[in-house]
Design a protein around this nucleic acid. Sequence first.
DNA 1: AATGAATGAGGCTTCATTCAT
DNA 2: GATGAATGAAGCCTCATTCAT
Lengths: 198, 198, 198, 198
Amino acid sequence: MQILKDEVREEIEKAAIEVFLEKGFERALMQNMAEKAKVSASNIYNYFESKEKLFAVIVDPVYCQINQLMQGFMEYETGRSFTDSGFVEGFVQTVAKGTGRFIKENHLRLLLIFDKSRGTQYEQFKENLIEFLEQHLKSSLKDSRLNESASFIMHISATNLIEGLLEIIRHYKSDAWVENSVNDFIKYHIRGLAQFFD
Amino acid sequence: MQILKDEVREEIEKAAIEVFLEKGFERALMQNMAEKAKVSASNIYNYFESKEKLFAVIVDPVYCQINQLMQGFMEYETGRSFTDSGFVEGFVQTVAKGTGRFIKENHLRLLLIFDKSRGTQYEQFKENLIEFLEQHLKSSLKDSRLNESASFIMHISATNLIEGLLEIIRHYKSDAWVENSVNDFIKYHIRGLAQFFD
Amino acid sequence: MQILKDEVREEIEKAAIEVFLEKGFERALMQNMAEKAKVSASNIYNYFESKEKLFAVIVDPVYCQINQLMQGFMEYETGRSFTDSGFVEGFVQTVAKGTGRFIKENHLRLLLIFDKSRGTQYEQFKENLIEFLEQHLKSSLKDSRLNESASFIMHISATNLIEGLLEIIRHYKSDAWVENSVNDFIKYHIRGLAQFFD
Amino acid sequence: MQILKDEVREEIEKAAIEVFLEKGFERALMQNMAEKAKVSASNIYNYFESKEKLFAVIVDPVYCQINQLMQGFMEYETGRSFTDSGFVEGFVQTVAKGTGRFIKENHLRLLLIFDKSRGTQYEQFKENLIEFLEQHLKSSLKDSRLNESASFIMHISATNLIEGLLEIIRHYKSDAWVENSVNDFIKYHIRGLAQFFD
DNA sequence: AATGAATGAGGCTTCATTCAT
DNA sequence: GATGAATGAAGCCTCATTCAT
């Protein structure tokens, strides 16, 4: 009963995802993945160059998509004020619903890249994303309001928004649940942000 | 035991704090600290039993104080509604101002215990603190409002509050700055929370 | 787990036995065994969990068999007087001949567990065995004779018997030689014991 | 309150004896002795060159005396048959009573040199002593009796005699007790030896 | 003499990765 | 492709001993 190559590759990826999730990149052992995938540890190297690359392969799709999302988000939002009545809808659509089954199909990978990537090239990604969002928020502020204090609040707001979305992803239950939670969560923050954009 | 040279002990602690901050507990090397402190690695063991204990010695004071703070906070808040006009003041006092020079003198240690403690006994501390705050928020909600959705928002709110405070600490500039930032930040969240407590 | 190359495993065991014998557990270096077995030190850990476990694996079979022997010896001797004419025969059979090739095949392991086990879980085994034999001897004494002096002689006798057997094992030459030596040796002690059991 | 030098030296020796006894040479830590002697570890090196020398200083007196004893014993026994009626008396006198307060005053040092000297130059001393006694016993045997079997029994007998005496020393209670125990113990062995010397 | 401080050699063990079949 | 076997680089920690005052 020879197992097809692609099947093995997928077994390994699946196992790797589990182990990376459970232990994080650094503590995850090739040996553990091998056991889960019912493969020898050395055989993993026939499919993936290294532990680091294995992680990258798993995580790269969401990495790219998020980058595209950011791209798209930038274009979509250009010229809009953050508190426009359409914003919540827009953001939610973009992040939750608009991404289609993105979260559903990728919530594990999302957690990997954001929560478990210490020791990899993606270590800084969450930070970058926050920075991106922060700039976005700041650029939506009227210049007259962009004092140091507000600026920092925008930083924290961005941090909170990303962390909050992650927390939702960590507790993923269903698409509908995510959509609702994101909705509530965004509203929560809109209220906090409102004072800066009224 | 003997009285060890305080200067060297402090040199080592300082070096350890730096390395722990930069690398986190697990990746921090005794060797690096030794170099920074201009001491042999083995000499560190004349001052601290082990890497783990060294971390504990550095971090324990803030660990204890935070636990006391939580104690105090519980007593202070008993019988109060979360949105009482006095709350912001109270919370700010407790967390920022009320703690005196706590943050000023301990912000590095705070970051260590919350951000860099993986692999130590303090690994779960942030999570516990969030849980604590979450319960606090939930218990302030009228029963009629405590549905699943609100409950989860409280969870995220707690997460955001702690993470936000940490972010403030990460960017520590001065006591006054912290006080202001906390103030603004709390207001921000009060607005989001308000709808649940009006 | 995987099936490891038996040959190497045996090579390592052999090397380990030699080094443990030569240096004793504590001074024995994994490095030395590695050299003797022509293997890298780290490779030993593909076969044995730790230095301690390696020792245990080598020594445990004889540990178990000796415990069984003690069990059997207790049952055999129940209700017999120690100086019965059948005793020498019985004891010799049990210890030397009755054990078949036990000593022949295990004399090195016996020396390890009795002489070289300092720092391991087997450290106390010889002492326990002596205690066991001592109790056995004492319980064979008529109560009227069990004064403090005789009691202590029984203790020394037990010590001597075990040490003597060990010395025979240390000088192992052949099964027949062991059998003869044990026989003579036991006779020797029977004479000394006789005065207490006439 | 300056402590006199000799007093300190004695404190250290006393402490060292305790620690060596408890742990054996190799496991004994200079630090432990220092604590017991209420001295700094480094100060020990003002009195003793090294751990090894410290052990030697403690143990050398008994080492010398035992060598003298052996000398004397050789001369005393020259021309006597081992089973001469006077032997027991002679041996006992030599070893127990005849040595005056030797055992009483030196039983700890005796245990050190015989039981706790692993890792030192005295490691082989017990073995040598056994060898000495063995030769002595053998030389007392009529040539006609000195077959291989008897020869080995003499070896074990020597081993047993030394080990037995040591066991008595390990349980030291009083001079009288030692004398009695040695007496009984020698008688015990005389009976075993008798068959070879009748 | 006394001591606190400092050090270096050394040992066990882990684990990603490579080798050989 | 698959696997068992092998390896080397690291890192933590211990302890006798030496140094500096």
